[in-house]
Design a protein around this nucleic acid. Sequence first.
DNA 1: GTGAAAGCGCTAACAC
DNA 2: GTGTTAGCGCTTTCAC
Lengths: 345, 345
Amino acid sequence: MKNRSDRISILDIATQAGVSPATVSRVFNAPQLVNERTRQQILAVALEHGYRPNASARTLRTQRSHVIGVVLPTLTNPVFAECLQGIAQATAAHGYAIMPATTEYKIANEIEAVAQLQAFGVDGVLLVVSDAQTSQAVANLRAQETPYVLVYNRHPAHPCVSVEGERAVHDLVQNLVQLGHTRFAMVCGQLQASDRAQQRYAGFVAGMKKAGIQPAALIEVPFVETAIDNISSVLNTDSRPTALICSNDLLAVRAMRAAYQCRLRVPQDISVTGFDGIGLGQDLTPALSTIAQPNAEMGHEGVQLLVRSIEEGRVPVADDSITLDYEFHRGESCAQAPIHYCANS
Amino acid sequence: MKNRSDRISILDIATQAGVSPATVSRVFNAPQLVNERTRQQILAVALEHGYRPNASARTLRTQRSHVIGVVLPTLTNPVFAECLQGIAQATAAHGYAIMPATTEYKIANEIEAVAQLQAFGVDGVLLVVSDAQTSQAVANLRAQETPYVLVYNRHPAHPCVSVEGERAVHDLVQNLVQLGHTRFAMVCGQLQASDRAQQRYAGFVAGMKKAGIQPAALIEVPFVETAIDNISSVLNTDSRPTALICSNDLLAVRAMRAAYQCRLRVPQDISVTGFDGIGLGQDLTPALSTIAQPNAEMGHEGVQLLVRSIEEGRVPVADDSITLDYEFHRGESCAQAPIHYCANS
DNA sequence: GTGAAAGCGCTAACAC
DNA sequence: GTGTTAGCGCTTTCAC
């Protein structure tokens, strides 16, 4: 009986085609070295059996797996899902496979994921880490000289594909000030769990300072489950903000929900902005105002950079970093500050 | 100079620990066979070098990769992203890695993905295909006796983890009829590209029949880009429906947008329901009414079923199929039919 | 243009 | 309880 484990091998193809395994191998790896007629002959036999060279054997022999590892926080947030989608498409176009792992924002998982990927012999890894500066996982990659590129993270000492989050939020604040807003609050997840959120917050602070506005509330939302309550409690105060700048789109959606529950209209009573540019944001009502990153493209570029350096036999370095443009989507969730607040200021 | 390609091997560990490679191997694969003291000794050396057995070599030797392939349409739709998240967590818990590929709903990509995964020697594959009945990719898996489980697809001849989509929509129609609705329309993507959508539509038709209601409009949306326009054109007619049953949540969000653009209030003027239960749906305003599938759990169960049968050395069969419960989330996007329409009926 | 043979790193008989 | 050895399927010199 045919057993699943005795798959057809290069030797079978060689035998049936009346050539040596070396020739069959050449057909797949250096076809120009093989006589046209024998090549066709071999290809015919291979096709008939649906033969493809065993990747583990090839990897073992060549020390090249044609697999890219990917480490990211979660696929529950569409930003990362969209990015992974971009990664998947780009790698497929280059003939690579991907091996992703999610960390749930846990440092220990980042480290474990990288170790596992290294055991699988991935040619390189793309990561979104909690904090590029202090990441042990990244340090390990570097120590082993495994090529890697950070995505979303932005740090001068590492090869990164990122967006200027700090500047983006800084400019956003100016933008809202133009619209008459003077009372702001920023909504973040746990700041220490994300260098991106920290950078966005830094932009917020800088923007406020630039505009000469009082330092404003930071609403740190420890768990997504309670986000709406956390935000509502701020919106229920007398001195509530007229603009809520959220460090990501998922929070912005919840902020709009919180506003609704507090009987505030978006954007008439309160403006809400997000960050990320998840696809769904544009289809919401009101359409989400957000600093849109080109998520799929970030994945694309990361793959591009990583694959190129892998194929050139070098490791990507900080100088290879790519900064992509973000785009402020005006949306419908932000507008002029409400009149009576303007009067107050 | 240290080269990235000469990673530490089992032989290095063996030499340094003063044992044979076989003993080192045993420490990782059958620790109980090794003397406690030598085991500790070897573990210490391994830890010091951060050694992990090379997965390609292990795979080549044992014919077991500990990798699960995943084939799905896209990660741009949160349903699949949430499911993959569940898959990633479950596989990690079992010590497996995943290798996903996206098909963009193209049959050719399904076939190619499966072939690539087979070349990588995955131990099994989880797939969401366009049409289980006619899938060549699935047929190939079966021909090679590669263990596989379908997720979301529901078909009597295959091992599936799914939800009774047909019944769900059938019941939903009754539900809406109870609320006074008599004019319905169903919104789908391209029906021939998804057996799930077909099943949901069948449930719609059956539900209408059961309620003794006129066969209603089917709004087939060929491209997501134009979804809102397609839907709007139906909403702008005199005989517009009072309830829009959408075959997935992404379409439902766009349907709500279309309603808004047509100056119809959801749910006062028109009720909208989705299907899938994407996480974001509950945070929207109005909260999305939907038939919620347990997306992460579907991934979990698929992994469970697949891994169990892999470890028992058999292939999952149709009889192993699992039907999970869906849950109707009432949400805020559906309500009583508007009065003047009731009067009409 | 093609073949013979060595060896990538590991595991699993089998021997002791 | 541990070591010796063959071989998984492939690529790649080197020889012809």
